[in-house]
């Protein structure tokens, strides 16, 4: 390529191109906002007939779900969603903390990258694969080994024993919770690892210099400093668990009967929509399913917003990236 001859004149630029390009990128950014706005608007409009008929509060606390009499209440799916997510967090939080601790403090340098990549790959596996594995492999395994053991031990304890009750068929609220735990572990542990690594090296080294053990450095120095980030990480995982659809649909059993026992088949908001949306006939049925979607979206929106706020607060303190 030969260089153009120097003429001493400045190249001419059309200011219109600049305006157009700026406008184009601005409208793309506005489209992102509009998408969220449109999703919320559509959910409210679509759910309106059901909310009008049943009332928002009564819709939330009614357990009956009967397409024949067109009586719909969201209690069973909401209970299923909250309980599966709670199980996922109860199992996933300590495990994720352990993994983050291992990667930031214990792991030899050469092993760091392979281990964190492998854990993050768990998050990359599509949820339908978790569903297949859960239904055909994990659920039978669980009902034959772990479930009888839990029923014989925790099931005999008064009060909480009622939770560990149900038929030994493998598909249950509890199985769904365990699979969700495995799915959210990579999210929580990788955010935790990132926030742990923002703690300045001097602080750890001073603690070690005072004679702290590795665990004490973690528990009394690193964790108190990164509390906001850790809560953010857990909220992020919770947001994932609440909205997860396919893996739950495979193993939760899809039953609309309300049961306290965790080994009974149940339902979650997402799995109810996935199973029934295409079959729903009649305005009220469809509107009720959309109303379920609205409830789910509201819950995840609040949880995810809190997660982002926590992580932003964390990033402000240490200049780390959320």
């Amino acid at each position: 390529m030969s260089a153009p001859e120097a003429t001493g004149e400045r190249p001419k630029h059309n200011p219109l191109t600049e305006t157009l390009f700026k406008g184009l990128s601005l409208s793309a950014a506005l489209l992102v906002l509009a998408t969220l706005g449109a999703i919320i608007a559509m959910l409210v409009v679509g759910a309106w007939p059901a909310l009008q008929k049943f009332g928002f509060f009564r819709f939330l606390v009614t357990a009956e779900w009967n397409p024949v009499t067109e009586t719909f209440g969201a209690l069973t799916p909401i209970y299923g969603t909250l309980v599966t997510s709670a199980i996922a967090i109860i199992i996933g939080l300590p495990v994720s903390f352990g993994i983050a601790l291992f990667i930031t403090e214990l792991c030899p340098v050469w092993l760091k990258r392979p281990v964190s990549t492998a854990i993050e790959l768990l998050a990359a596996i599509p949820s339908i694969i978790y569903g297949m594995w859960g239904l055909f492999i994990f659920a039978p395994f669980f009902s034959e080994t772990i479930q009888p053991w839990l029923t014989d031990t925790l099931g005999q304890v008064p009060v909480i024993g009622a939770l560990f009750d149900g038929p030994p068929i493998g598909v249950s609220v509890f199985t769904a919770g365990i699979i969700l735990a495995i799915m959210i572990i990579p999210f929580i542990s990788s955010v935790m690892r990132d926030v742990f690594e923002t703690v300045p090296r001097e602080l750890r080294e001073s603690a070690y210099g005072l004679g702290c053990t590795t665990w004490e450095v973690m528990w009394k120095v690193v964790l108190p400093l990164t509390r906001a980030g850790v809560v953010g990480a857990v909220m992020l995982g919770l947001g994932r668990a609440l909205g997860e659809t396919m893996a739950v649909t495979f193993v939760i059993g899809n039953s609309h009967d309300f049961n306290i026992g965790l080994f009974w088949p149940g339902n979650s908001i997402a799995s109810t929509i996935a199973n029934e949306f295409t079959e729903a006939d009649g305005e009220i049925y469809t509107a009720s399913l959309i109303a379920l979607g609205l409830v789910l979206f509201m819950i995840t929106f609040i949880v995810l917003s809190l997660a982002r706020l926590m992580l932003a607060r964390m990033a402000k303190t240490y200049g780390g990236k959320s």
């Binding site: 992102v32 906002l33 959910l43 992020l236 609440l242 997860e244 659809t245 949306f277 789910l296 917003s305």
Partner: peptide
């Protein structure tokens, strides 16, 4: 926009289907 995009990133995909 960044905040909304982060929300969309983790929003339940079933709701996007609906």
């Amino acid at each position: 926009v960044r905040f909304v995009s982060d929300i969309l990133l983790s929003a339940p995909s079933i709701v996007i289907g609906v």
